[in-house]
Design a protein around this nucleic acid. Structure first.
Lengths: 210, 210
DNA sequence: TCCTCAACCGAATGATCGGTCGGTTTTTGG
DNA sequence: CCAAAAACCGACCGATCATTCGGTTGAGGA
């Protein structure tokens, strides 16, 4: 493996597990065997390294999620949602560091001032939400799902599933054993007619407000 | 306000908004007007300051949530849950810094090695989950709610609501406008009979596994 | 009034960090 | 095979950080 890739891999793990500020370049040199100067030969500074890590996370997560879900396009909408939820939980388990990084506060803080960072995060969440939304929309069409706004419901399903993975990550309760209940809850939520429709008009807005 | 309280207040805000490592003692001295030495007169080091901040967050959040929800004990269980969800969303809005801190990765990292930190976090999550669980249990008893395990369902509701507040915090979509949909989803989820029951036996386990 | 003790101050310190730079090695393409 | 470019090295630097310490202030009790 090239030093560049070794640095990227180590940075991904350390940024995710220990945080950006608490990861020193000297720690990266120890793990990768690269010299201090090599890091700054490939990346202009530490923040640039972080942005490259995030870019990798973006492509890894989005392509993996797309690949896992696209095979079920022909199934009934309700089953598609269930499969998407299971896929998301699998993904979070297989790409632990990537999801840990996305669950940290730091990327969103950087996103406030850095357009590249904001774009990477937008890309991830747009991908995830679009897929959930697509499954729900299919379910509405084929009659397996009754709900007001597909977009709003996708947000809620996503918040639920992502919330569970967070609880699992932080060792709060044995959240990993809740997966069956999560899926059952999704089905209940989608089968019942949510009549509020308070946000149907916003269903077509972009994912990020400003 | 005593210097000690001023330091605690400023540290709460800065640890929440900027993070622990990225908050320097010199920044605290500038904001509070206290000298560098004064910080270490009241707290033996920076981590001790953090633990005191977290302890404050614990009492603030738990007592506020208890107070908000205890008035509705006599209502039907389903209405209790709705009110608890609304209360949680209000709380997250009123105590922005406290929730921001609880949504950071750092406290959970410290909790792995520090028993006081772990206790504070346990206390917060036990309080929140117990209240949600109590509402659901009341609903099961009075027939307004059908669900398998009250504990598991409480976890899922909590994950959903907390997930939405996180999306809101990080400016992902206009999550704040989803509150009505969230409540409607909770009702759908609780009204339908979730027959899985896969985790009913774990309903009495402690909140934290190990 | 004086003693005591806690609150408070701010300069000093040693360690660490991100980043630079001049040089060496390796790779590559003609 | 050779030259040019890219990868890589590690000593070095200024800045910043958490923490220490000797001294000052101020309130309260005897």
């Amino acid at each position: 493996m090239s030093k560049r890739n070794a640095i990227l891999a180590a940075a991904t793990r350390l940024f995710a597990r220990n945080g950006f500020k608490e990861t020193s370049t000297s720690e990266l040199t120890k793990i990768t065997g690269a010299a201090g100067g090599t890091i700054f030969h490939h990346f202009k500074n530490k923040e640039d390294l972080f942005l490259n890590v995030l870019k990798d996370v973006e492509t890894t997560v989005t392509s993996a999620f797309r690949e896992l879900t696209e095979r079920h396009r022909a199934h009934p909408g309700m089953d598609q949602v269930e499969h998407a939820v299971i896929s998301y939980l699998q993904l979070a388990a297989n790409f632990e560091d990537q999801f840990l990084l996305l669950h940290r506060h730091y990327p969103y803080q950087v996103a406030e001032t850095n357009a590249d960072c904001r774009r990477s995060l937008e890309s991830v969440y747009n991908c995830l939400l679009e897929i959930f939304e697509g499954c729900i929309r299919a379910g509405i069409k084929d009659g397996t799902i009754q709900t007001g706004s597909a977009r709003s419901t996708a947000m809620i399903i996503f918040a639920m599933v992502d919330g569970i993975t967070r609880l699992h990550t932080y060792n709060i309760y044995h959240a990993g054993s809740l997966y069956n209940d999560v899926i059952q809850s999704c089905r209940s939520l989608l089968a019942a007619s949510a009549s509020s429709g308070a946000n149907e008009r916003t269903g077509k807005e972009g994912t990020w407000p400003v």
